[in-house]
Design a protein around this nucleic acid. Sequence first.
DNA 1: AATGAATGAGGCTTCATTCAT
DNA 2: AATGAATGAAGCCTCATTCAT
Lengths: 197, 197, 197, 197
Amino acid sequence: MGTRDLGARRDAAATIKKAALSLFSDVGYEAASMRQIAAAVGNQPASLYNHYPSKEEILWAICEEAMLTLITRGQEAAASSPDPVEQLRAFVRQHIRFHIDHREEARVINQQMTRLGRERYRQVTAMRDDYERSLRRILRRGARRGRFHVPDYRMASYAILAIGMHVSVWYRPDGPSPASAVVRHHEQLALQLAGTR
Amino acid sequence: MGTRDLGARRDAAATIKKAALSLFSDVGYEAASMRQIAAAVGNQPASLYNHYPSKEEILWAICEEAMLTLITRGQEAAASSPDPVEQLRAFVRQHIRFHIDHREEARVINQQMTRLGRERYRQVTAMRDDYERSLRRILRRGARRGRFHVPDYRMASYAILAIGMHVSVWYRPDGPSPASAVVRHHEQLALQLAGTR
Amino acid sequence: MGTRDLGARRDAAATIKKAALSLFSDVGYEAASMRQIAAAVGNQPASLYNHYPSKEEILWAICEEAMLTLITRGQEAAASSPDPVEQLRAFVRQHIRFHIDHREEARVINQQMTRLGRERYRQVTAMRDDYERSLRRILRRGARRGRFHVPDYRMASYAILAIGMHVSVWYRPDGPSPASAVVRHHEQLALQLAGTR
Amino acid sequence: MGTRDLGARRDAAATIKKAALSLFSDVGYEAASMRQIAAAVGNQPASLYNHYPSKEEILWAICEEAMLTLITRGQEAAASSPDPVEQLRAFVRQHIRFHIDHREEARVINQQMTRLGRERYRQVTAMRDDYERSLRRILRRGARRGRFHVPDYRMASYAILAIGMHVSVWYRPDGPSPASAVVRHHEQLALQLAGTR
DNA sequence: AATGAATGAGGCTTCATTCAT
DNA sequence: AATGAATGAAGCCTCATTCAT
């Protein structure tokens, strides 16, 4: 028992979360029904409630995990080098990577998070702002050292984030460009956008 | 009857469309109910069906109008000058303008269009691709003349479009930057992103 | 239209209320389902919501109407004569009458009213207290004039009310005693209980 | 094992019964869920089934015990003296006592017993009738000896029972009258109601 | 053109209960 | 004896839509 059971428990919740993630990402939170989620994991709807107290809580679990990952990686990128240019490069790399590797999570946090209750919505928003500030700080620091030239830090950071977010929409593993190329190209685009000389 | 009545009829439909637009934009297509839309225009739900045969048809009307506007303006921008740099400038200007002035429409076509039926979805997607190709063509032409330097036309055009789409998310009329400044800044950002020398 | 329609509207609501009343009275508020109520009026459950916004609201409509009737009749009885003995007689007569003629309503207000929301519960309780005070006042006045002899006004009034409430439980139209005899007997019992000389 | 375990077993069942009693009394049998009962005893719902085979069985256990107590005490009161007046006095004393000391049980048997299955319902009803006949017999005997004067034995006994039942509704330990006064006052009320000279 | 009413489908969730552990 | 998980049934209610008026 013990380890095994806890494992099974965690597995079931994770399986549900994954199924919900796919559905939320594909058709949206509202259009995805508990019935569909249950069917996707081979259960009855009522069984889901042994693992999550509500549909919203599943959405929250998805959003929270994704945002925490994003924040962590963003901070690591920001701390990866003393050089702002290298920082930006690392940040963009991880940003695009995430939006390629976790397309579904990305779409959910970008489009479905408004369906969270007021308080949870606030939390996710706060995390998102946190992440955004990481990038803005990089831009500001680089600009002060004359490495970047942007008309407005805020808009520049929004722009870079937006580009990545959109990757989660158009990228397809079977598309014309391999993930590594997408990442590389976006590094360059972001550096140009930042006005690197 | 005749002109007058047709006018009134059109007005009513427009009023409904506007109310639906706000709701779709705020809470999403699925979460917005015909009851809410009717309440917003001071009617009963059943009355809506005198003007639109279904909820989806309202969404379609919104999407179609918005896409047509966007396409038209995009083509005008592309034709506004023989100089690719000026074309890009004009395109971005119009793109950002639209996403500021029609924030709600923009959010609906970007996020809710998946709720359309298969055929309608295809049509909107086709229009979107059309719009995107306008921009891609500008970039390609400019690159051939040595004015732009981007690693990949498709990604570069996606990037520029994404930046604008995101403006419709974060822009607020009562925010720190006036619309004109937002437009101006994005012109510069886009030119830098395109690697203009 | 007009009168006729309003009539139909009122009729539908009244029909639903009556069906719900029977069910609430028989099996209790919780055990009675909207499905059952709808079936009893020959409708689908969803149709009920065209007439009452919720199950609780039906309960409330029942309780409110019953309590208002009871209060009104109680006050009329209290005002029917200057003589406290006659007042008590009239009060008991109407009290028993109500609990015979409106057995179902009586059982619902006595047993199901706790299922109302906090605020509504408070209102019904207040009305019940109002009714009770009518009776208590009669007893007090009569006692002051030496016509009644009870150890405690409150308990005596509770006792008389309780006797009537219980009539709604055991009385059956096809039982051994006709309603008129039940009323008459209870007049006497109440007068004795009140210690009339 | 043996004694000790049986004791523990019985304790657990009793604890569950007590928790269920409170809930049934407060919100009604239907509105009280096995989950709530389990939570009240610090268990999971599934555990309850080690002690009771079903929710209804808990209700039955409560009703049966309460009715047996009531019947026994009623018979003791009826046998406590050869004098009908003393018998009535004793009966009422015990009746009120029970409805004060076992308010919750009283409310459950008076209001929730209809939720029992047909057969169990019949049994409880039979016990109740048994109890009622004890009182009716006292009244009849006393009337024959000219000590009581009531218009109808059945109604008089219902009346006295009803008064007590209602005590379980309004009595509160922190109310204005101590239990002993309530008992005493009701003795007098009942004797008056019975037309004692 | 407007709407009150009806409705079938389906929404999320809770229920009492079972069973393997 | 306890319980985590599963489940079929059912709970209340909302939905988009239809139709007669």
